[in-house]
Structures are given as C-alpha cells and as structure tokens.
Design a protein around this nucleic acid. Structure first.
Length: 939
RNA sequence: GCUCUGAUGGUGGAAUGGUAGACACGAGGGACUUAAAAUCCCUUGGCCAGUAAUGGCUGUGCGGGUUCGAGUCCCGCUCGGAGCACCA
C-alpha cells in the first residue's frame, strides 16, 4: 500500500476544519494549559522554512498536553501594524490595510499547509478595531493612573489629585519625571489646565518634553530598543537626539518589579541576563555639591562613594540645565559653542568618539568632604539622561575621567594603597583606601567595600546626600509620526489633552488621501480633518471650549508597534468580548501563558513591554497573574545554506568545486532550489537566467558539485527555502519531522535540505509496518511478543521523557529505532500499533490520523490518551556486566538484573578470573554503577 | 571592558560522573534490475597489527586539578556567537 501523503494530508486538514477539532472552550473540569507563539508580522515575502520552527515545536507540545488530558489553548494571530506595509503604501499608494490583508491570507494558506492545531476561531489582528479598542483602553487606563512607590503599584490618578489638594507633594512618594515641591495651596490655586499639565509628572502614560531618538529618514521617533548603535533597526538609518513633546509610558516606575519578577519565571539565563542588563540597576549614593560664590547646589550620582577624596573636577552633560546657571560670563561663548557642536552630532558620532572633548564653565564646586574647590566642566561623555546629568570626576579610579584629566591636564589623586596611576586609572573595586582623611572623617585603612558603606552612612547622617538606586531603563516613547498604527484616543481642549470617552472607543483609524506628513509637517493623520471633527462632534459633549478654527482637535500621532503586541495573549482568551479586554472569569481560568515560544530578538522590546503592560493591568485587577509568560523557550534562527557555482573568469564556463583551484574563478550565488545534495541541475541552471542559456560545464565524476556557505536566509543570496515546496514534495509531516530533527530547538542552525530524505524514508517505513506485500492490513488483536512490548515501551519512555524537555530530535531518533525493530520483529499486534500511532500523533498528525482511522477508530487521535510506559517489559532477566579494575575492563559476568549491590560485589570477587588480579593487592572498594559495570578498586 | 553562551567524526547532532560518537545525512562496497530510480544489506572517528575472527593505541578546542572513572565537575587559557557599554 503506497503512502500517498498528499491525499492523506488534504483529507485530514479538511476534516479538522469541518469537525472543529481544534476549537477549545473554558472547561473547569479539566486542567488548562496555555501554549503561545509570538505572533508574526505578516510580511510580503511570506513564510520561509525558519518561521514555522517555533510553531511546530509548540504544536507538538500542545498536542501532547492535550493527549495528557489538558484543556489546551493554542491560538494564533497577526501583529499587523508595522512600517514595511506603510513604506510600501508610500511608494505605491496601495493602502496598508489591503497589503496587510493579502499578506495575512498568504500566511494563513502557508500555515494551514503544515497542519497546526491552532484554534483559528480565536484569531486576533492588531489592526482590527475590535482588537485595538483594548489597546486604546489600556492607554487611557495608564493615562488615568500613577505609580505609588509606597505601595509598589499603580493607583488611580484621583488618589493623587486628592493627596495634592490636601497635602501638596508633602509625603508623596510616587514615580515622577522630576522632583516637584508644591503645597496644597499652590496646587489648589492652579487652573484646571495647569493642574492637568502638572499631573503629567506622575501619569503612567504622559505627555513629556524629552530627548528622543529621531530618525529623519523614517520621519518618526523610535524607542531605545528600536535603535542599535545609533542606527534604526528597521532600515539602518541614522538617528539623532532631539527634544520633542511625545507620549511616553512610565516603564521606569516598574524597573524594580521587572527585575524581581525575573526570579519567578522559567526563562533561560541568557535572556534574563539581557533584561537585567537592559534594566541596569545600580546602587549608589547621591551627593550634594555647593557652588563657590553662588546659591546654586547640584546633586551627583556615584557608585564609588569611597572616592570622594579623589575628586579633582566635576563634569556636566551639555544638555544639563545647570550649564546655563553655572557658566560665567567669560566662559559663555566657549561653552555655547561647545554645546551647539554637541547638538549637531548624531548619537552614533558621540558613541564612536574616543577622544575626550569639553570646556570649562568658569565655576567651582566645593567638595563637602574636604572643602576643596574643584573646577566644573562640560563634556559630552556625561549623559544627560542617566543619574542627574552631572558627575564628580575621580581620574585616578575611573578610566573616562582619567582620559579627560590627561587631555586637559587636571590633577590625579590616587586613593588605593600601592596603585600605579601613571599610565592608566585603577578602576577595580578592590584594595585598601589611603589618602582619605577629612576633618572629622577618615576612610584610610578600610577596604573599598567598607569605605563605600562608611561613606553612605556619613553622607546620610550629615545630610550631604542619600543612598540611591538608579536604573538604566528609560520610559518608553509611545508616539510615532506614522499612519499605520493605533490612533490615540485623545483630543485637545485648547492644548490640554483629554481622553475620548470610553463608550466612544474604538477610535477608528481614518482613511487618508496620502500617507506622508502634511504640508505643515504634521503626521499623516493631519490629512484627516473630517475624521477629527466628526469624532469630536460625536464623542465630546462639552466641545464648546474647543477652538475649531485654528487647532486640530485630535492627537495626530499613532502608537508604536509594541502597543498592539503587549497584551494580545490576554485577548486570545476572550477575543470576541466587546465589553472588556478579557472577562474576569475567563482570565481566572486561563491565567497566564504556560509555554511561550519565540525568538531572542524581542528580549529588550516586546518581552519587556509585555511584562510591564501586564503588571500594570495586574495592579488594576484586570489580569490575575503578575507575570504573563511563565516559561519561555527561544527557538534558534534558521540560517540559509547558500550554494555557489564557479565561473571561469571571462567565459561562460562553470567549473565544479573540486577542480576550481586550477582556474581563475568568480563564485556566484546560485538558487538553492535547483541544487540537490550540492549537485547542480544543469538544465535548470541553463533555464534559470537567459545569460546561462549556453553555459558550459567542467564536471567531476560526471557531476557539477557546488560550493556552499552558511549565510542569512535572504532573497539576494538565493537561499530562501519555501515550506510550500517541501510540503508539496515530501508532505507536511516530513517537513514537521525534519525541522525538529535538525537539532535542539533553541539552537541556531543552517537549513540543509540534504537530510530530509531520511525523515521521508522513516515515515514510509512506519506506514509500511501496517501492510504486507499483498496489501493486506496487518494489525491483529493479541499477537504481541515480549520483543514487541519491549520495543514499544522503550519508545513510550523515551518520547514521554524527551517531549517534556522539548528534545524532539532525540524522540524522533527513538521512533526510527523502534520502527526498525518492529519491522524486524514482523510485529502484527494491534495494541502495539495503536500505541505507536498515538505517540506519533503530536509530531506527524496527518499520518497518525489516517492510521488511527485504519485501526478502526471513529474519533480523532488528538483525544487518544497518551500511553503509559509499562516498566515490567523493559526488564531483562540477566545481563552481561563488565568488571573492571582501576578503570580497565578485565572480564565480564552474567548477572541477574535485579541483583543487589552487595551480591554483585560478592559475585565479582568470587568470579573465577578474579584472584590473579588480586594477588598481593588489597581491595579498597567495589563500586557497582549503572550501565553494566562493576569497578573494583585495588591498591 | 562587564555579563551570558557555546566548542564532540566529512555534516547535523546523541550521551542522569559510568562501554564517547545514538539517530540521520553524506561517502564506499554489495544485492535486486536490460538500465535507471526506488528498496534492502554491509562498512564508515583516527592510527597500528592481523589472511581473518579480532586485538592494541589514541581520541570530545588548549593546559592543569578532583575522582576508581571526566565530553560532563573545579581552576586557568584560546576561539566563536549574543547582550550591555563614555551608565559615573
């Protein structure tokens, strides 16, 4: 009987749809399990073989869990907003919604080909108003909340307003943009608009004037994780720093909880470490410095409080507000020129620069420990956004300060016994402190660690400063000057931002005539005036105050890509709910994602924002778990394996790999789809491109062998392998199997079609177990032999163990071994075959369903119970045990398998061959270890 | 610079501290066939000895250590991949 995978796969895919096999409902009688893949951005290029890797891995696990009796949620959807569709729209005029729809349809077709157990009735798309309703809703909740440091959670903004009106900022401990001091009277005297503006200092979603990453080419600002080495991640365009008024999310308020939460979740160390780096917690001290002949004071942040006696100058960031206050008239011109020069530099230029530049302000600060006057400089090696934007410089013990001091000839005072700072600074936090004697305070003789602690204590007691924890993590910039994103549900009342009433959500994205900024430089939504006024008239009741002559009444920015992907896992639980993001009871059932699969590239983006977003919803009681993703598995990237042909220079002749060294050749990328096992299909090559029509070849052994290299999978390298082609040629089951067989899912590896035949061969062999040469169905009741039982139980044990740790490649090896054994044993027992098919079902569902039906079952194999291993069949009566002395095998013994350790020792010592090895020697101990070895230690 | 990862045949990769190289690909040999494809069987880390069965030595990036026994644990390097980085 021939294995016709095409027919079988088509049949079952259709039946799964008809019978709603993969649709799930909340079912309190069964335990739940939530499996999730990072949903894809549907790009125009379609899926390549790398994309389904994670989906297959999670599908296997989801199917396995279902067979183990869990109610499994395994949804899929699309992260549909994004720059490529919009860039394409700008070039072609094609509406992004149209291209996105097309791409989604193509993705769906490709995904359906692979036989996933997704519950498509729960599909979400971030660009669907039914979906982004809740993205906008969450934003409004953030706008109407602040973060209370005392209770460590988000609170309604009304509580803050109440506090301000009764006590001002007195006793208020909340996450804020800058430190404000207000009395209740001052607050109450403010106009409503002023109060609204002031509240931005605390809101979790706030409008802030801040330095942003501006990308002129893309015409938009970008978040920190969207910029790498001063270039935009999308497109690689330069990014400059610019001060702009933008919507921001106060992610920094959650820094400590984001850090602490990492200890409660099962993610790999490396991705946790990446997030820890990104959050960048650093414990230190803030110290207040007075300025000579002035009332001005300023604070600096340091992690090396022990080096207070080595401060020889101070440095301000060029963007610091102190620069203006501290520059003396004589230095004004020089400082001005320096600050202007810095502004013109791109982020990248500032990062690359190794030389220290700077300028003296003319002012001096007074070291609170020594009373010394030290000059205050301005330099761009100090960052405005970190700490206080000002530092105390200790050139002896900080390499950057050292370089600056050398450049400008400033003094260097060493503070560690025996350190040599003539060539470079001594940065290590170790050694014994010296040179540190003040009026009433000395650090001499202490270790660095002790000195830091002592200084902290002193500073706090004397009111010179305080202990402070700083984080690198910045607030997320939430505005994009783009069209294809969620509109902000915000209108402006004479410049004061207000939320569109909740009952008016979703605020739908309007049609626009063009996707570029308006002539006045407004974002693309500025083209949609009609939409703006209609919205205001429809939703805002008291709109009399809005000046409809001059000011555009709605927010024109749209939200960034991470907005829609931050809470999508909650929406999958209850995707059609039009009254809430997710029903409370439904959320209480599904709780959080048990297994999340996706790439590491989202470590500092989506995976931070999502955790932040969920923690916020948790604080407000909308999500019942604090961490959204309990277990995270990162699938590796699938790289491309490119093939090359070698053209003899100046000819149209191509020489095979083994002979190319005899010629002057140019390697040329050749389409991997016309190469098999590195052998070129000559006719296909000639037909590939017109210029190769009359190509000639120099062959080796009658074949043209191509060279190869591992590169990124990309169109330009002609190494993109399309899963549809593999499915067509080998079937989806073979594709699934092969992708998993390539190696552990968390490792990056090149796609190499060379091995795929092995998996196809295995499935054919497995299929052939069920029919004899005449085409008769083999399985019969009650014919199991002990060998059959041993083989299948070995398989059950191996697959059950391996699947739990996602070691699918070794499971598949076990299947191959078992298949060969059953074939050799000429197994005919129906029970054995049923167990075999059941085990196979998560991996290769189509063939498993077909065989399951052939075995006489009317129900789907998806609900067959996962077999339990019967250990008794694995045991043997006796086995050969090697006996070794001092690590070398000397002889073997046949012993019963269930023999005790003592008896084994006795048997080994009494064995006939033993004495001659023991002559004149003393037995120290006998060690019985698993795997059939007894080791006798002698002296 | 700091942090995290990894290194095993021609290739992808297996090995709870216990016979390293499972399984697969590739390669070589053989069977079947007019032929090819497909299928099946055998060999396959390296070196040495033997007509052969087989035996010996060596071997998991490098150098040490712990252990009866180390790919696995510890210390010190080399090289690759990733993250952070003028973060005070």
């Amino acid at each position: 009987m021939e294995y016709r995978f095409n027919e079988i796969e088509r049949k079952w895919r259709q039946r799964w749809v008809e019978q709603h096999t993969y649709e799930v409902k909340e079912d309190p009688s069964r335990p739940k399990y939530y499996v999730l893949n990072m949903f894809p951005y549907p790009s125009g290029a379609g899926l390549h073989v790398g994309h389904p890797l994670g989906y297959i891995a999670s599908d296997i696990y989801a199917r396995y869990k279902r067979m183990k009796g869990f109610n499994v949620l395994n949804p899929m959807g699309y992260d549909a907003y994004g720059l490529p569709a919009e860039q394409y729209a700008i070039q072609t005029g094609q509406h992004p919604a149209v291209t996105t729809e097309q791409n989604i349809n193509r993705y769906r077709e490709q995904l359906d080909n692979i036989g996933f157990s997704f519950d498509w009735s729960r599909e979400v798309r971030t660009c669907d108003p039914q979906y982004y309703h809740w993205t906008q809703w969450a934003f409004q909740k953030m706008f109407n909340s602040f973060y209370c440091n005392t209770c460590q959670k988000a609170q309604p903004i009304e509580k803050l307003v109440q506090h301000l009106s009764q006590h001002g900022t007195e006793g208020l401990d909340a996450a804020q943009t800058e430190e404000l001091h207000l009395t209740a009277a001052e607050w109450n005297a403010m106009s409503e608009a002023e109060q609204s503006r002031t509240l931005m200092n605390w809101r979790i979603a706030y409008l802030g004037e801040m330095m942003v990453n501006w990308c002129p080419e893309l015409g938009t600002v970008l978040a920190n994780d969207e910029v790498v080495e001063g270039l935009s991640v999308r497109g690689g365009y330069p990014v400059v720093q610019k001060k702009m008024k933008q919507w921001c999310l106060r992610v920094s308020a959650y820094a400590q909880r984001l850090l602490d939460g990492l200890d409660t979740i099962d993610w790999t160390d490396s991705i946790k470490e990446t997030q820890r780096n990104w959050i960048g917690r650093s414990e230190g001290t803030e110290v207040l410095f007075r300025v000579k002949d002035s009332d001005v004071t300023f604070t600096i942040f340091t992690t090396r409080a022990d080096t207070m006696f080595g401060v020889t100058f101070m440095v301000l960031a060029p963007e610091s507000e102190l620069v203006g206050q501290l520059t003396t008239p004589e230095q004004h011109e020089a400082v001005e020129a320096y600050v202007t020069r810095t502004k013109k530099k791109t982020e990248r230029e500032r990062q690359i620069a190794t030389d220290k530049t700077g300028v003296f302000t003319g002012s001096y600060a007074i070291n609170p420990f020594t009373g010394d006057e030290v000059p205050i400089w301005v330099s761009d090696y100090v960052l405005a956004g970190y700490g206080t934007g000002a530092i105390m410089a200790v050139p002896a013990h900080d390499s950057r300060d050292y370089a600056f001091a050398k450049t400008f000839n400033l003094p260097i005072i060493p503070l560690i016994e025996g350190c040599d700072v003539s060539q470079e600074s001594f940065d290590a936090k170790e050694g014994i402190v010296t040179n540190s004697q003040g009026k009433d305070f000395s650090l001499n003789g202490l270790t660095v660690k002790e000195a830091i602690a002592a200084t902290k204590k002193y500073v706090t007691e004397k009111g010179l400063g305080r202990v402070k924890v700083n984080y690198r993590l910045r607030d997320a910039i939430f505005s994009r000057q783009r069209y294809w994103g969620e509109p902000f549900p915000v209108y402006y009342d004479n410049g004061t931002p207000r939320m569109i009433p909740e009952e008016c959500l979703p605020l739908e994205l309007p049609e626009v005539k063009k996707f570029l900024p308006t002539e006045t430089g407004e974002p693309p939504l500025g083209n949609a005036e009609r939409w703006a006024w209609d919205t205001v008239n429809r939703c805002v009741t008291e709109n009399s105050k809005i000046d409809n002559q001059t000011v555009f009444p709605l927010e024109l920015n749209t939200m960034p890509g991470f907005a829609g992907s931050s809470a999508y896992y909650l929406r999958y639980m209850d995707p059609k709910n039009d009254r809430a993001l997710v029903d409370h009871d439904v959320d209480a059932y599904w709780k959080s994602v048990d297994l999340y699969i996706g790439g590491t590239e989202h470590a500092t983006g989506h995976l931070i924002y999502s955790r932040f977003w969920n923690k916020f919803l948790f604080d407000l009681g909308y999500s019942c778990e604090e961490e959204p993703f309990k277990k995270l598995v990162n699938q590796g990237m699938i790289q491309g394996r490119s093939n090359f042909v070698y053209r003899v220079q100046g000819t149209n002749t191509f020489v095979s790999l083994g002979l190319k060294d005899q010629y002057e050749v140019t390697p040329i990328h050749v389409n991997v789809n016309i190469v098999q096992n590195d052998v070129l299909d000559l006719e296909a090559f000639k037909a590939w491109r017109p210029e190769y029509n009359d190509a000639e070849f120099i062959l080796e052994d009658g074949k043209y062998v191509c060279g190869w290299a591992i590169e990124k999978m990309s169109k330009s390298m002609f190494n993109v392998v399309n899963p549809d082609r593999i499915v067509e040629k080998y079937g989806a089951d073979t594709l699934r199997l092969y992708e998993m067989f390539l190696g552990p899912i968390n490792m990056s590896k090149p796609w190499d079609s060379n091995g795929i035949d092995g998996c196809a061969r295995f499935l054919r062999k497995a299929w052939n177990l069920f029919w004899d040469k005449q085409g008769n169905f083999v399985p019969k009741e009650g014919t199991a032999t002990p060998e059959n039982l041993k083989s299948i139980n070995k398989l059950i044990k191996k697959v059950s163990d391996d699947i739990e740790v996602y070691s699918y490649n070794t499971s598949i090896s076990a299947f191959m071994i078992c298949t060969n054994e059953l074939a050799q044993q000429k197994c005919t027992d129906k029970g054995i075959f049923e167990q075999f098919v059941t085990l196979l079902a998560p991996f290769t569902p189509h063939i498993a369903e077909e065989l399951w039906e052939q075995l006489g079952h009317a129900t789907t194999v998806c609900d067959a119970p996962w077999p339990e291993c019967q250990e008794q069949y694995l045991k043997e009566d006796s086995e050969t045990i090697s006996v070794s002395f001092n690590g070398k095998t000397r002889f073997t013994l046949d012993l019963p398998t269930d023999i005790s350790r003592e008896d084994a020792e006795k048997a080994a010592l009494q064995a006939e061959a033993t004495p001659k090895y023991l002559e004149g020697k003393q037995v120290v101990k006998v060690i019985v270890v698993p795997h059939r070895i007894i080791n006798i230690v002698i002296k």
